[in-house]
Design a protein around this nucleic acid. Sequence first.
DNA 1: CGGGTTTGACCGGCGC
DNA 2: GCGCCGGTCAAACCCG
Length: 240
Amino acid sequence: MIIALQNQLMDLTSFPPAESSFSMTGKRKIQNTEMNRNNDSLFDRIHETRNQTENDITRPSCKRLREDIEPNNAHTTYTRVDASDSSPMVRDGYQWRKYGQKVTKDNPSPRAYFRCSYAPSCPVKKKVQRSAEDRTVLVATYEGEHNHSRPSPVGFTDTMHENTSHPYVMYLNSSNSTVTLDLTHQGLNSNNCDKGIELIELQRVLAEKIASSLTKDENFNAALISAISGRMFQDTQVQN
DNA sequence: CGGGTTTGACCGGCGC
DNA sequence: GCGCCGGTCAAACCCG
């Protein structure tokens, strides 16, 4: 557990710029230990959304009860877009049909409601709204799971290359309290160096936040001390 | 003309 | 009971 965390942290902190900018294709999942509140607005938002989602689980809305949507399937993604891009669309490879828009109380940006239009029976819905703190961040909340495959990966890739979004996407899973940094949606190419730099900066900030959170976690420190002392004890025995 | 978007109306839960 | 709020509906509109 600890070693896995360390490896993940090492992965995040040791990405060579070239690789991190242009050739990363995997997803990196980070166990979300008690992520401490700090001054970073994006991470505050992540924490708040996780708590909000957990509240949704314990107090499901009337709509969800009526439509029998599984709350555990809900997760939130964060997508960086250009500030000049006013479109609420988050291109994730699926076909979405907008069925409503609403201005919410806590955010001046309108919230858009989408349903998956690829398969008529697909129960997936998503809500897209710009972050109140950082309007370049689109917050997309997905509910349900697709009962079909991704429609057209090739077209998706083409769109990604010509579009301005997806330097990174973060997933928040309400059921198992994990944060996933998805680098497959970054949409970077050789003409997009600025976003590569932005991604590196994000990785640096993310690594700092994780390190900060872990070092403040008493359980993690205790486990780390135990692991180190255990290893030292082993080494001492070997030498003897 | 068909499919997608817009937008005002409506519904139901919640708090006071 | 009433108003607020988030979510959804559906008619009108737009566009290829």
